[in-house]
Simulated assay, not measured.
Amino acid sequence: MRALRRWTTALVVLAGLAMAALLLWSLARQRPQDVPWTPLDLGQPVGMFTGRKLTALTQDRGACLALLDRAGIRYNRLPDRRDGPQCGYDDVVRFLPGGARGLAYRPASLGMSCPVAASLALWEWNSVQPAARELLGTEVVAIAHLGSYNCRRISGRSSSDWSEHASANAVDIAGFRLGDGRRIIVVRDWDDDGAVGRFLHRVRDDACGLFATTLSPDYNAAHADHFHLDQAYRGPMGWRACR
Rank of each mutant, 00 (worst) to 15 (best):
R5T: 10
R6E: 13
T8K: 09
T9D: 06
A10H: 05
A10F: 02
L14I: 15
A15T: 15
L17K: 04
A18E: 14
M19L: 15
L23A: 15
L24N: 12
S26H: 07
L27K: 02
A28C: 06
Q33P: 00
P39R: 07
L42M: 06
L42R: 03
G43N: 11
V46H: 00
M48L: 15
R52D: 05
L57D: 01
C64S: 07
L65V: 15
L65P: 04
A66V: 14
L67T: 01
L68Q: 09
R70I: 03
A71I: 07
R74H: 11
R74D: 13
Y75G: 13
N76R: 10
D80K: 06
G84R: 01
G84I: 03
P85Y: 05
P85W: 09
C87H: 00
D91T: 11
V93A: 01
R94N: 08
F95R: 01
F95L: 13
F95T: 02
G102N: 10
G102R: 07
L110E: 04
P115Q: 07
L120R: 01
A121V: 13
A121S: 12
L122V: 10
L122T: 00
L122P: 01
E124F: 12
E124G: 07
E124D: 15
W125N: 04
W125H: 08
V128I: 15
P130G: 09
P130M: 03
E134V: 07
E134K: 06
T138K: 03
V140T: 08
V141C: 02
I143K: 01
A144C: 02
G147N: 10
Y149Q: 07
N150W: 04
R152S: 07
R153A: 01
S155P: 00
G156T: 09
S158F: 04
S158Y: 05
D161L: 14
W162V: 01
S163L: 09
S163I: 12
E164F: 00
A166D: 00
V171C: 03
F176T: 02
R177Q: 13
D180Y: 14
R182L: 12
I184Y: 09
I185S: 06
V186M: 08
V187P: 00
D189K: 12
D192I: 10
D193L: 14
D193H: 11
D193K: 14
G194F: 05
G197A: 12
R198F: 03
R198G: 03
R198A: 10
R202C: 12
R204G: 08
C208V: 10
F211R: 09
A212M: 04
D218Q: 13
Y219I: 04
N220H: 07
A222Y: 03
A224H: 03
F227D: 02
L229W: 05
P236R: 04
P236H: 03
P236F: 00
A241Q: 10
C242A: 10
R243S: 12
R243V: 14
R243H: 12
